[in-house]
Computed example of a mutant assay.
Amino acid sequence: MAEIQLRNLSKRWGNFVGVDKFDLTIADREFLVLLGPSGCGKTTTMRMIAGLETATEGDILIDGKRVNDLEPKDRDISMVFQSYGLYPNMNVFENIRFPLKVRKIDPATHKDRVMRAAEMVELEPFLHRKPAELSGGQRQRVALARAIVREPNAFLMDEPLSNLDAKLRVSTRAQIKNLSHELKVTTVYVTHDQIEAMTLADRVVVMEKGVIQQVGSPTEIYDRPANTFVASFIGNPAMNLIDGEIQDGTFRCARTEIASLTGANGPVTLGFRAEDAQVVESGGQITAPVYTMELLGDASMISVRIGGALVSVKAHKDFRIEIDEPVSIAVPSEICHLFDRKTGARIGA
């Protein structure tokens, strides 16, 4: 097992900063997700942990030992990539077995270890097949089994579900969650998909432009985003964000007036979640014509335009309204989040 410490870790290419002063301890057996948009530095951070990229500054420690100068093969870490990286000439059994052969592990143990790994990802019926005879989901499970068979100190997973269709993504995500529970191995998982982060992680690190924006449990990040970037990145739909002004405890902007807000005066960005507001018959804090209505199955999503922002609220699944009809939305002060208009930082605890 392994605790991974990243100390003031940076990666630069000339003047371009890929990762900037990344400082974090990943606990033994923790499932940590690095989350952010393309180009935010999450994969670069993971590749530095693996030894596939050289850190410009800072230290990487695994169980207290500095590993910056160790080759990837000497860090006792298994990786699962976005591309499956399977050997087309080998069947599933041999693909899973390959890391044991490379590391010269006692051949007498190979069959038992391969079968145990295959069983964990439900591949026993496919061990004789070549990769070309497998579906995308099955190939990804071979890649997972190949990582598991080594029994490493840590797993590094780089967007392993991004090549799968929506249905396979859900089932494979559940499998990874179950494997994490069974294996109890430190795991660093990279994704741009906030649903994967919310469902898999013990802790989430939200990154933008190489900088950590917030670290916390999925619940903490969802309920109390540290800034407008996190608020806009986490959630489906993302948190509604409206620019306006607070005077004497009342937030105002076009078609919106929300009273009983404390902790700020002057220009702010106000946020609230679509599921926390309600469509009401009259007297809501927002009154505006409907911009769109979408049927989601379990709810109806109503959107209106407030200033330059598109604001969404979830209504009952049977609710119906036409575009351009006026709608009233209740936004109680207790569901609102306030952010500094200039910096985007959260205002208040």
Rank of each mutant, 00 (worst) to 15 (best):
Ile62Tyr: 02
Val211Ile: 15
Lys111Leu: 14
Leu183Asp: 00
Glu151Trp: 00
Gly249Glu: 00
Leu161Lys: 01
Asn8Ala: 12
Ala226Val: 11
Leu179Asn: 07
Leu123Glu: 03
Arg320Ile: 08
Leu296Ala: 14
Val114Arg: 10
Val331Trp: 06
Arg169Met: 05
Gly271Gln: 15
Phe31Lys: 06
Leu134Val: 10
Leu310Phe: 06
Arg273Thr: 10
Pro160Leu: 13
Trp13Pro: 03
Leu168Pro: 02
Ala299Gly: 09
Asn163His: 12
Thr172Arg: 03
Val331Ile: 14
Arg97Glu: 14
Asn89Glu: 09
Asn89Val: 10
Ser282Phe: 13
Arg346Ser: 14
Ile306Ala: 12
Leu295Gln: 14
Pro332Cys: 11
Glu334Ser: 11
Ala132Gly: 08
Ala132Met: 04
Thr292Trp: 00
Ile306Gln: 10
Leu86Asp: 04
Met1Asn: 13
Ala277Thr: 07
Lys65Gly: 00
Val114Phe: 02
Asp248Thr: 02
Arg305Gly: 06
Val114Thr: 12
Ala277Arg: 11
Glu133Ile: 09
Val102Asp: 02
Phe155Gln: 04
His337Glu: 06
Pro37Leu: 13
Glu71Ser: 11
Gln138Ile: 03
Arg252Asn: 05
Phe98Leu: 14
Ala315Ser: 09
Arg252Pro: 00
Glu325Asp: 12
Gly58Trp: 01
Gly216Val: 13
Trp13Ser: 13
His128Pro: 01
Val304Ser: 08
Gly41Cys: 15
Tyr291Phe: 10
Asp76Ile: 01
Gln247Ile: 00
Thr269Asp: 06
Ala345Arg: 14
Glu275Met: 06
